[in-house]
């Protein structure tokens, strides 16, 4: 964590990264508004890159977790993820049902199989 510093330095760095590297996308979205065709190939590509990146993050957090989650075996983690996806799809894409099931299966799997 040394690169983020401590105290006010940390907060200022976070604010700067947010303002200069994250929030402008929202402003761009506002500015573009209805002016651009969101069906254009360029937009589709950007969407794909962003989706793949977040999907990659999901895998990284599930397969190579840091902290307390690492104590749960990868088989249990993957089963819980699969159960969450299955329930989500079978309940007409109910986000709460999917996330809740994933959490429950993780608890059950940890207690039963470690």
């Amino acid at each position: 964590m040394n690169e983020l510093g401590t105290g006010a330095t940390t907060l200022l760095l976070m604010l700067a990264i947010s303002l200069f590297m994250h929030e402008p996308w929202r402003w761009l979205g506002l500015a573009v508004g209805s002016r651009i065709d969101i069906q254009s190939p360029w937009f589709q590509w950007v969407r794909g890159v962003a989706s793949a990146l977040v999907a990659g993050l999901v895998v990284r957090l599930t397969l190579f977790p840091a902290g307390a989650l690492a104590a749960v075996s990868s088989g249990v983690r993957l089963s819980a993820m699969a159960a969450g996806i299955a329930v989500f799809l079978f309940t007409g894409r109910h986000l709460g049902a999917g996330v809740g099931t994933g959490a429950l299966v993780l608890v059950a799997g940890r207690l039963l199989f470690g």
Binding site: H22, E23, R26
Partner: peptide
């Protein structure tokens, strides 16, 4: 990751 927000805002 912020790129995802553009279409949502649009």
């Amino acid at each position: 990751t912020g790129v995802r927000l553009v279409p949502m805002c649009v």
